[in-house]
């Protein structure tokens, strides 16, 4: 009997392995090897061309004194702390609005998703133009509303809000996932709540919010990871000419990944860049785990 169980278990393991094998191969080639390589590089002085030279924890120690490193880290934390809740709120409100049956709904949804299809290289230039204080549309609109018109990309105080604006523009992917989640809330629950005399707001908080909370958790994790790694939007907004790596006035738009990129491909400090990547990886891991641990308090688990 025991022997049979063993055999069954082994067969199950083999099956599991067989089904998971594409990703196992992919992981081994495209992840495990590069990660091991970068772990080794992070302990070396490496310029991409000559053999790495072992320096122990030197790169990690250098981070402690590198003012630009800290600047890029605080910028990234700012973007994450402000961007994740804003993106979540915006995509949820958007999904609630788009969930409402209106004629032309499929088209409206497509239009909200559209920004994610626009190639990032072009959208970077497009937004630079929209934010131009002289012939940009945004300041023109603010002028019409008699609101102050910031200099956006030329003002250290407005660089990060500008980056947020552009990242929030592509919140359509999250909206689509929320839309799907809303569709999945059983209508009987609303009916029951309505019969209990719950108003619309109460229904949202007592039915919708708990029912979609697993999806919300998914979104929080995915968007936190995305913000901690944010690169393309600030990189293109700060870039004034092709191939120049700029970071906005007073490095106000320098994200962690941008500084990592600069070290790797402009200064050719691959070792330092690898060490930075490892720190980012560990920070992301810690943040994700703490979100998951906290999630039990607010995520409603429907299956149990």
């Amino acid at each position: 009997m025991v022997k049979r169980q063993h055999a069954v278990r082994r067969r199950q393991s083999l099956r599991g392995l067989a089904f998971a094998s594409p990703y196992l191969v992919g992981f081994a080639i495209f992840i495990a090897w590069p990660v091991a390589a970068s772990a080794w590089y992070s302990l070396t002085d490496f310029n991409l061309f000559q053999p790495p030279h072992f320096v122990g924890l030197g790169n990690y120690r250098h981070m402690l004194h590198d003012k630009v490193f800290w600047k890029s880290l605080t910028n990234t934390v700012y973007l994450t702390v402000v961007g994740v809740p804003l993106g979540l709120a915006l995509s949820l409100i958007g999904a609630l609005i788009l969930n409402h049956p209106v004629r032309g709904q499929p088209l409206y949804r497509a239009l909200v998703y559209l920004p994610t299809i626009v190639p990032v290289v072009v959208s970077g230039y497009l937004w630079r133009w929209l934010m131009n204080p002289q012939y940009g549309y945004i300041d023109e609109l603010l002028r019409l509303l008699h609101l102050p018109q910031p200099l956006w990309l030329d003002d250290p105080a407005w660089g990060k809000p500008a980056v947020l604006l552009v990242t929030l523009w592509t919140v359509g992917g999250m909206t689509v996932i929320f839309l799907a989640a809303l569709r999945n809330v059983p209508k009987e629950l609303y009916e029951a709540a309505a019969m209990d005399g719950a108003g619309p707001i109460a229904r949202f908080w007592h039915v919708t919010w708990p029912m979609i909370s697993p999806v919300t958790l998914f979104q929080v994790i995915v968007s936190t990871i995305a913000y901690l790694q944010v690169f393309t939007q600030p990189y293109l907004l700060a870039q004034t000419r092709l191939n120049t790596s700029s970071a906005g006035p007073e490095n106000s738009m320098l994200s962690y990944s941008m500084y990592l990129f600069q070290n790797a491909f402009v200064y050719l400090k691959m070792g330092y860049a690898s060490a930075m990547a490892w720190v980012l990886f560990l920070v992301t891991m810690a943040v994700t785990v703490s979100i998951l641990l906290n999630a039990k308090r607010w995520v409603h688990d429907g299956s149990r």
Binding site: S13, L17, I31, A277, F281
Partner: peptide, 23 residues
């Protein structure tokens, strides 16, 4: 149901956290 399921899931999630510049 196999023993590798959880480790495998962790690997998949961990990969998502990896900064693309590393690889």
């Amino acid at each position: 149901r196999w023993r590798g399921q959880m480790p495998m899931l962790m690997i998949v999630l961990g990969t998502m956290m990896l900064p693309p510049q590393v690889t």
